[in-house]
Amino acid sequence: MKQKTRLNLAWLMLIPVFVFWACAQTETAQQLNQAIGPEQAMVPAQLAEAGAEQDEHPDVEFTESCYDCHREETPEVAELWHNSMHGVVNVGCFVCHGDGTTEFVVRPTTERCIACHSPKEVDFSNTEASSCFSCHNGHTLKFHNE
């Protein structure tokens, strides 16, 4: 636990470096983003992902279901989910994101998808994708945001 804290502190030290890069290379970063899609290569997101040991859900009372609360708190996202295939077949928020207390994952990994979608298991080495979410939107699940 101590080690984790130290590492997180270390990441704070890295921020100025990234700020430097971000400023110096705005143009090229944009080019990169355009070239390989906005979901990838976003440096700040990458920083968040690599640095986070365990995501934390806001401390709420958890007396109602994820969806019931998020319908009010984040209606856009809740709506996207509701109209997606996951919404239609009732694969709820908690399946991908955890329950919010014992487990919480902001950006679910491919392994989580495969548990239910094993036929869709992809050998990414021959593709340009690194995870299911390289191509599928996390909430609408649509391919390339069609």
Binding site: I36, G37, Q40, A41, M42, V43, Q46, A50, E111, I114, E121, D123, F124, S125, E128, A129, S130, S131, S134
Partner: peptide, 15 residues
Amino acid sequence: SAAAASIGVDLFLKP
């Protein structure tokens, strides 16, 4: 791997 992931490439391991 982290670099690879940022451009959508899985560098080392098949599942």
